[in-house]
Design a protein around this nucleic acid. Sequence first.
DNA 1: GCGGATCGTTGGTCGCACCAACAAGACCGG
DNA 2: CCGGTCTTGTTGGTGCGACCAACGATCCGC
Lengths: 145, 145
Amino acid sequence: MTTLRHVPSWLIGQASMHSHRLLAEGFATAGARGYHYRLLAALAAAGPASQATLGRATGIDRSDVVAALNEMTAQRLIERTPDPDDRRRNIVTLTPAGERHLATLETVLAGIQDEICAPLSAAERDQLVHLLTRIVDHHTGERTP
Amino acid sequence: MTTLRHVPSWLIGQASMHSHRLLAEGFATAGARGYHYRLLAALAAAGPASQATLGRATGIDRSDVVAALNEMTAQRLIERTPDPDDRRRNIVTLTPAGERHLATLETVLAGIQDEICAPLSAAERDQLVHLLTRIVDHHTGERTP
DNA sequence: GCGGATCGTTGGTCGCACCAACAAGACCGG
DNA sequence: CCGGTCTTGTTGGTGCGACCAACGATCCGC
């Protein structure tokens, strides 16, 4: 696509495709996918939380949280306990296996960042992060005004 | 996701999500989607071509080309003619309506680029394009050696 | 002429993002 | 205390994009 080579959205999309593919491969060999990592990371960062809270923290839809959590309970990575203070809620907890799993996914993730940014110097990588941060912040801030 | 805010692949993915959403909205109001634009652009750039050629030029799978082309023939944007020189092939041609449609999609696309890059100066936008180009080239070059 | 490659097509799979609806429960104003 | 409103978990379904396997038909090199 010669025409599209200068178009930001095309470049962003292509870069996203490649990184997503690499990430999906890496996560798949660990038996996980993107949603799993995000949820594990959120749980590790903020401690046990309800599913709705997790959904808000990760930007994953409530219904998709349910599905991912089902898969993760099957793998004994998390546990669902009914909240005694609010019987609508489930309190989701990270199991030791879940913490270990998160650690391996974390290393996978880090390795793939280097792979993605291979052609860039450290300074350029920081530059890229800075530019993208501004774009992402701009469009997430304006989402729900 | 505080943890992910510095991770390139996360930023790329988020940026891709936003631009994809904007683009999908814009294209949808014109009755198109991403594949349609890509195919129209490829046809305009290289002239009439077979479906397999189009697939290779756009990076879209043969089977997905079929589906998109079906939708586009229903909208009278393209025409499929059997190739007399090779009876396996269809020669796909852009209709006048298709050219007009492409033009409107082109303006939609351009507008959205500005929207995406709104928080960036012209120089920064060039910088971003340059950095992303290097990443994309790196990972597409290594794809099929 | 035969074997291998190519082309269009059908019919699936997967990941991610999203939406609508519902019952159960919480919560608040009157 | 009761009714209305909101939240929570869950079910089920949509759309897009990327991909893969298999098929008959056709072409091409040997």
